[in-house]
Simulated assay, not measured.
Amino acid sequence: MRIAACQMVSGTNIQANLSTARALIDSAAQSGAELVVLPEYFALMPKSDQELLDMAEDFGKGPVQQAMSEAAKQAQIWLVAGTIPLKADDDKHFIDACIVYNPNGEVASRYDKIHLFQFERGEERYHEGQTTQAGKEVKSVNIETWEGVWKVGLSVCFDLRFPELFRKLDTPDIITLPAAFTTFTGRAHWDALLRARAIENQCYVLACAQGGVHESGRQTWGHSILIDPWGATVAELTQGEGVLLAEVYENRIKQARDILPALKSRTL
């Protein structure tokens, strides 16, 4: 199966971001991608989290969700729509939701980001828990293609640091990770953590990132990447907007698990 990650450098104009996302999705689909992933906060990289709170949509309706549903249907792809802010249980928080659309434009799954980023280094600080409501349920989705059915485990950005979440996905074929890693943490940890998740779960990991300097002043690491079940890099971008295209093979997953049956050897 051919898959794609659409790396972006999202700004503060929602319509402009949606136009960019749509162009990248269409480019990926025209190149034969059947599964396309967008980054975290693809529709808005705000100057403050209050902006994400203000744009939060009711689940199942709203301009961002409608645009993504139409994009998936018109391109005839499975779309992991990065994250979309949804209304939470109170008006002081939003949900950072990863919504998966099938080729009919229907919602196939929704994963709410469980682990909320907290970081402080000089003047650079983030505390997502102040405005984001954490999810509670691990999610995966089976996607049907011409080649067969693939089990896709869903995760978002800071989840990457918590291997127990990925164990609960119960041996997916592919893990997707929309992200907006900071440049500082990305340079230090991005590659090592992604590679570890692929090796220990013996599956493909497709990470789709924000990658550049944003209007808000935030700097994101980029380096969207596909890693295979043996921990090898299949394809990678660096900075800026673009489409990462690559192939995944079912027999590569089987080969890794047959050569080193680590998943069968688990005792905990």
Rank of each mutant, 00 (worst) to 15 (best):
R110Q: 14
G32T: 04
G11P: 02
L177F: 03
E147L: 11
E128P: 00
D173A: 07
A75F: 01
D91S: 13
K92V: 00
G82F: 07
Q130G: 05
D112E: 07
P85V: 07
T238N: 14
L38I: 13
K73T: 01
A196P: 08
C157K: 04
A108D: 08
F119E: 06
L226Y: 00
E106C: 06
V243G: 09
A81P: 08
I95D: 05
G60I: 06
A196C: 12
A23Q: 13
E106S: 04
F162A: 13
M45G: 10
G231H: 10
V213W: 11
V243W: 07
W150N: 07
F117S: 00
R161T: 12
A21V: 04
K87Q: 03
F117M: 01
D173S: 04
T183K: 09
I227M: 02
P39V: 10
K61C: 15
L44I: 13
C208E: 06
A43E: 09
H189C: 12
V36S: 12
T220L: 09
A16G: 12
F181K: 08
C98E: 15
T220Q: 09
A209N: 15
E40S: 14
A71E: 07
G129N: 01
F59N: 11
F59Y: 13
D54G: 09
R252E: 12
I143V: 07
N251M: 14
V141S: 00
E51K: 13
F181L: 08
H127E: 04
H214K: 09
A29Y: 14
D96W: 09
W150I: 00
G32Q: 06
F42C: 06
R257C: 08
S31I: 03
D54N: 14
A16P: 05
L237S: 13
G240V: 10
T145L: 10
A4F: 03
S48K: 11
